[in-house]
Computed example of a mutant assay.
Amino acid sequence: MSAQETVRRQAGSVEETALKIDPEKAKQIVDALNADLAATYVLYHQVKKHHWNVEGAEFLDVHEYLGEITEDLEDGADELAERAQAIGGVPLSGGAAYEAHAPIEPEGEDVYGIRTSLENDMEAFGVIIESIRDHIELTNELGDYATEELLRDTLETVEEHAHHLEHYLEDDSLVLESATN
């Protein structure tokens, strides 16, 4: 770790920026963005775990799709963090901070069957969807239309993944069940 002792910006602080968002409003928005950032990274690590551990007849398709989800989550997290910084805040950083601020609980280290794993992912996506919708409303009320638009774009991506996971979990499949007789 660096020997530098001077803190340039303290976590949890908000400073005025050229974007001219009132610091008290910016604080509320940064808190919302950090909650969504935290949830995104908690879900990212959960989906990545499922990506690494998926097995079975549909391994390749599910493995590749989970990889796509993690790429989208990482891109979305980057956009949330950069917006929090742009409006004067300090984005959260680190696993412990993410877990402490996320509205979702991490799944844990155990490996589950892929159906259970995807159900856990879909449940987490549902919590994130509700959180982002609340934050869209908040940013609109506070007059931060750029953050509102960013969150709308994020919501569209998150909803699309939740919808696709729902399809993976349907009981109709081309995979034949093995005969037990």
Rank of each mutant, 00 (worst) to 15 (best):
L66Q: 02
S178I: 14
E166G: 15
V7N: 03
L60E: 01
M122W: 14
A162I: 11
E130Y: 04
Y168G: 03
A86P: 00
Q46F: 15
H50F: 05
E64H: 00
S178P: 07
D172P: 03
T157Q: 08
G89C: 05
H45Y: 15
H161T: 07
D110E: 11
L138Y: 14
R115H: 14
H163A: 09
S178R: 15
R115I: 14
E16S: 09
L80A: 01
Y145T: 15
E177W: 14
L169W: 14
R133M: 13
D171W: 09
V175W: 12
Y168N: 06
T6W: 12
H45R: 03
V54C: 07
Y112R: 08
A57F: 09
I69R: 00
L176V: 13
A86N: 01
G88Q: 02
Y145Q: 13
A57R: 15
A86R: 00
V47F: 07
G67P: 08
T180R: 14
V14M: 02
S93P: 04
T116P: 04
A38V: 07
G56P: 07
L142W: 12
V127F: 05
V7M: 06
E148T: 11
V42S: 01
G94H: 07
E55H: 12
E107L: 10
Y98A: 01
E159I: 10
E55T: 15
G95P: 02
D36P: 03
A100Y: 03
E58W: 05
M1V: 12
E24D: 13
E170Q: 14
N120S: 11
L138H: 13
D153S: 07
T154V: 10
T40H: 03
G12H: 02
V42K: 00
F125S: 00
T139D: 08
E119S: 11
N120F: 15
T154G: 02
